[in-house]
Structures are given as C-alpha cells and as structure tokens.
Amino acid sequence: MSETFEYLLRLGDSALILGHRVSEWCGHGPYLEEDIALANTALDLIGQATLWLEYAAEVEGKGRSADDLAYLRDAHEYRNLLLVERPNGDFGQTIMRQFLFDAYMVPLLDRLSAHDDPRIAEIAAKTAKETAYHLERSLDLCVRLGDGTEQSHARMQAALDDLWPYTGEMFLGDAVDAAMGVDPSALREAWLATVRQLETAGTLALPDSEYAHKGGRSGQHSEHLGYVLAEMQWLQRSNPGAAW
C-alpha cells in the first residue's frame, strides 16, 4: 500500500515539476510554433501529474486531494527525479532535458500499461500516447539542432554533457520499484537505443561517464526544487483553506 503511494508520487512529481519548468517558457519561446508546442507539453505534463496524484491521494486514503499533495508538501517530501528540476537554461538545455526524460518514459509507460493494478495500467496507457508525441518532437529537435550550425551543435553538446549525470538516477531500482514489480534498470537498454540517435543523426557525442547524481526519489533534492515550490505553492500557503 505505502509502496504504491510512494511509486505514484514519483510518477506524479516528475510530471508536475517538469510541467512546471516547461510552463516557465510561456511567451518566451524561440518562435511562435515552439511557444505553442512548449505550452502543449507543459499542459500534458500537468494533466498527467493530476492523474497520478489523484490516484496517489486515493491510495493514501487520508482525505488529501491531488492539490493537497502538489501544494502542501515540502521539498523533502517530493519524489521527482533530479533531472526534471534542472533549470530551463537555454532552449537547448530545455529540449535536451525533455528528450532524456521522454526517452525514459516511453519504455516505462509501455511496461506500466500492462501493470497488474488496472488503474496504473489505465493512466499509463493514456499518458503513453502524449509521451510518444513528446519524444517524437524532442528527439527531432535535438537531432536537428545537433546537426545544425556550429553554434547549435555546441549548445546541444553542452546541454547533453550537463544533463548526463542526472540520467543515471532513472535506472536505479529500490525496494519500492521491486514491490511494484518494475525494474528500472531493465529500461536502460531501450533508453540508450533511443539516445544513441543523438550520436548518429544528431552528430553529438554521448558523455563517457557513469557518474550519477541521486536522491530525488527519496526526497534529497538539489537546491533548485525549494525555489520551484516556493513559487508554485505560495498562493495556497498564504491563503490556507481558501477555494480557487
């Protein structure tokens, strides 16, 4: 029971924090079509977070709502991957972060679509469709910018180098994963096959480092998350109990 709650928080929190980050781009994208695509992605992710957190609240059974979980938990109670709380940086950082996450979520959601818990399977099947679209877009942009101008290539390589140490965490299994019957390390091969397209089509070099920052899924975050939550939760915190 509590493992299910933990696991759902991980899924919901990663979607929520990444959705929040992407939403910071609203009105500031490099061109109009990208403004639309970024808002669209953020919207999908917030919707996914809502589905996971609603179910998490139900599983917990303490009368909390998805909004309570999103707005009234502190950073140490958040279970998102460190990757998704990385700052937006330039557009290259943002789209590379999106790609590395999407490439992981596609095989994970595929696995979860066949989960024994029918509710998890149902949410995974729904979100898998959106995520497939996200991956198509983020891969395409990373490849095109990787093999674009000298400058766009350099920026995409820098983004990949910076974010690489935050990808290892995605494949570290623990007791919660085991209890849920999901082995994240088994997803690495599928992920790597997708990511290798950056090398071939995108002319980028995958970093030669195994070092992985970790801690997000157990509530040990980077310094960035506190600021995200301060901004996101402020209105709820300053008006306790108000309806919006």
């Binding site: 939403s23 919207l43 917030i46 809502t50 996101m232």
Partner: peptide, 28 residues
C-alpha cells in the same frame, strides 16, 4: 503567463496554460 507558475490549483494551472496556448495559436 506571469501567473502560470503561481496558479493556485492544478486545474487552474492547466486552464491557464491552455488559454495561453490558444492565444499563441490565435497569433499564428
């Protein structure tokens, strides 16, 4: 867009995002 990151609930956040997305679409 100034209030998207501070919207008070998940559904308000989603509604506002959808609206700003619509506006970019109107622009296009």
């Amino acid at each position: 867009g100034n209030w998207i990151t501070r919207a008070p609930t998940l559904s308000r956040k989603a509604i506002l995002l959808a609206k700003v997305q619509d506006e970019a679409g109107h622009g296009l």
